[in-house]
Simulated assay, not measured.
Amino acid sequence: MSSAPQLASGQRSQVFIGGPAQAQPTVLFETDELQIEAPNWSLDGKTLYVNGNGLLWALDVSTPESGLRHIPYDGLPELNNDHVLDPDGEHIFLSGNDGHIYRAALSGGAVERVSPDDGMWHFLHGVSPDGKRLAYVELKDFSNPGRLAVLPLTGGPVSRPDTGTGHIDGPEWSPDGEWIYFNTEGFTSAPGHAQLARIHDTSGEVERLVTSETVDWFPHLSADNQSAAYISFPPGTLGHPPNLDVEVIVVSSRDWTTPLQRYRLFGGQGTINVNSWSPDSTRFAFVAYPIAHDGE
């Protein structure tokens, strides 16, 4: 039996499209048959890639009514929602529920494990713009905080930049490769109080992006480096759980303190775990999980 997230009775997955100039997001696709998560937008702008029921699926942006198309892989373990496109536009990196990261063609077929057999869990979030390194969260076990790890795909040891003592998640490079953006619990002693930050890829300088009362996760920059989106959980939230009233917030990358758009929805885990910006940087995708009440 799959351990992947499942929809509750009366619940559905809704893929929304929003952007810096879009006050109200629009529904691209919805289903009550599958809990789909974490859209990636293809580099040609034609397809969204999502996970659901431990598998990878493709959704045509121009004809979403055609539904989800399963992408079959050989020997790939059940997937979670940490998957990121290879900059070559033809491959994808996938995190399996066995704790390893795999590289595969977007067309399906054989897969290659790329994470080391080091006894750690590896949760992928970022690929460097040149496609030569992966940024992931490294965990010995789930009682310890996650750490930033950077894996050179061409060989060599894993590096572990110092982001402080707090749990981190969501590390991904800026499009220019200068910074790695992430969320961290290291700025406060309040349990679970994640805030947004970035670390310089060469100097190791850490910079806090926002100071807020909310619990903020998964900063994602647009391809032109001008806009960003992230998810905001209610104060006191521990981790990034599902099924909460949350906000997806859009900002200018030059001013993270002033929201351009705020999208309120019922979601959380799965809504925007990975970068989902369109290649032209005008819009991005995210997922809500509304539950119908009796009589609706």
Rank of each mutant, 00 (worst) to 15 (best):
Ala4His: 08
Ala104Gln: 12
Gln6Cys: 06
His100Phe: 11
Glu207Asn: 13
Ala104Met: 11
Thr165Ser: 12
Leu43Asp: 10
Glu247Gln: 15
Val158Ala: 02
Glu213Asp: 14
Met120Tyr: 09
Leu55Arg: 14
Ser143Gln: 13
Val251Leu: 04
Gly54Trp: 08
Arg198Tyr: 09
Thr188Met: 00
Ser232Lys: 10
Pro171Tyr: 02
Ser9Cys: 06
Tyr102Ala: 12
Ile71Lys: 00
Thr271Asn: 07
Glu207Leu: 15
Arg103Ser: 05
His240Asn: 11
Gly89Arg: 14
Val287Thr: 13
Gly18Asp: 10
Asp255Lys: 08
Asn243Ser: 09
Asp82Asn: 14
Gly270Ser: 07
Gly177Tyr: 04
Tyr136Pro: 00
Gly119Asp: 12
Gly54Val: 13
His125Cys: 01
Ser252Thr: 01
Asn273Trp: 10
Phe142Pro: 04
His200Ile: 05
His193Leu: 11
Ser189Pro: 01
Pro152Met: 03
Val114Gln: 00
Tyr181Trp: 14
Ser253Lys: 05
Thr31His: 01
Leu134Ile: 07
Ser62His: 15
His293Lys: 14
Leu244Ala: 13
Phe284Ser: 12
Asp201Gln: 05
Ser252Phe: 00
Asn243Lys: 07
Leu244Thr: 10
Leu260Tyr: 01
Pro241Arg: 07
Asp118Phe: 02
Tyr230Leu: 05
Val210Phe: 12
Met120His: 08
Leu48Asp: 02
Ser174Cys: 03
Glu185Thr: 15
Pro175Gly: 09
Met120Leu: 06
Ser107Lys: 12
Pro72Ala: 15
Phe142Asn: 11
Lys140Asp: 14
Gly170Cys: 09
Val84Ser: 04
Leu153Lys: 02
Val137Pro: 01
Thr211Ile: 05
Ala21Glu: 15
Asp216Pro: 03
Gln6Val: 15
Arg198Ile: 09
Gly236Thr: 09
Ser189His: 02
Ala21His: 14
Glu178Arg: 12
Gly155Tyr: 03
Trp277Thr: 07
Pro64Phe: 11
Gln35Leu: 15
Thr188Arg: 08
Ile36Pro: 00
Asp294Lys: 08
Gly204Met: 10
Val250Ser: 03
Gly186His: 02
Val15Gln: 01
Leu260Asp: 04
Pro20Ile: 02
Glu78Thr: 10
Trp217Gly: 00
Ala23Ile: 07
Gly99Trp: 09
Val210Gly: 13
Trp256Glu: 02
His193Met: 08
Gln11Leu: 03
Ala292Val: 08
Ser278Leu: 14
Arg264Pro: 03
Val111Gly: 07
